[in-house]
Design a protein around this nucleic acid. Structure first.
Lengths: 160, 160
DNA sequence: CCATTTGCTTCGATAATCGAAGTATTGCAA
DNA sequence: TTGCAATACTTCGATTATCGAAGCAAATGG
């Protein structure tokens, strides 16, 4: 049972770290992790809809509306009615948005990347295998495998 | 670099799972993860102060006040002025609070515990070692090693 | 005994989140 | 074709979590 405790504590530490890095992100870059995540999705998809964001972030459309409101308010994104289906609204990233995405140093990722890179090859392989194992243990069946997440989001350059 | 991506994706999956389990907890048990965490701390310490909770959860005292307000409102906790130092307020858990703690099935922990228990001995050891390693990589230096965390909290019977 | 520190609450603000209700618009079916 | 259901989104009202600043009361140290 000792091992179980240790593993849970380690998991906690990981979660806490992401949480705290989220706050740091907010301080440093003036954007919240959630907004950052939405912006990433808008950027990736080029021309997103509220529905798309809502599905990928697994939040309600109402939430997306308020999120996009904030991005628009801050000049990071734009809304544009779709010509084809006028119920839809396309959401576009602005220059400023791209710039923010590009410049924002995600402190969590940076730290992890740095430390990870310092490891020996076999160590990296082992860590990946184990992280994936744990992820598989936690991923509930009802939850599909989409690698999207809302809190303490990790910025990934080459994202699915 | 592929490994880095894999590890980041796995990390994400872990974070997302905890996030979603947090929501489940709220639905099922009617208590939010944050409140649950506060309640755990109150329970563990027997007679906590707002300051203690604030430090362990790493949130401001103002936040703790509002958190405890909710716990008190819901009959999970009580406030009691300290006789020794009358600036302090002791925060106590109520019967209902204990009951909630005891009965609440933390879905994340349950799942993890079950899966973890199924593993072979050496696998468990390896996972612990690797999780701890990752935790160490993410734990910023400024952050002390206390295994406390606020979001997607994992319930631990024999904590710390 | 006064000034400072400490512990906590109050106030006002913001973000994230939801469900329900409302507004267009599309699309299918009779 | 007309009309009703489904779809896409917003608005509204509510809740939680969170903070900083300001306030109040008690302790403590000169």
């Amino acid at each position: 049972m000792d091992r179980l405790d240790s593993s849970l504590i380690a998991l906690r530490r990981i979660l806490r770290a992401t949480e705290l890095f989220g706050r740091e992100l907010k301080q440093v870059a003036g954007i919240t992790p959630v907004q950052f995540r939405a912006l990433q999705i808008i950027d990736e998809t080029g021309q997103t809809t509220a529905k798309e964001i809502s599905q990928r972030m697994r939040v309600s459309q109402a939430t997306v509306t308020s999120l996009v409101d904030k991005l628009v308010r801050d000049g990071m994104a734009l809304r544009e009615k779709s010509a084809l289906d006028r119920r839809q609204t396309h959401i576009l990233i602005t220059q400023k948005g791209s710039q923010t995405l590009g410049e924002t140093p995600d402190p969590l990722q940076q730290r992890f990347v740095r430390k990870f890179s310092e490891l020996a090859d076999w160590e990296q392989a082992m860590i990946v295998a184990n992280l994936e194992r744990v992820a598989a243990m936690l991923d509930a069946d009802e939850i599909d495998a989409s690698p999207v997440l809302q809190t303490g989001e990790i910025k990934l350059s080459s994202e699915m």
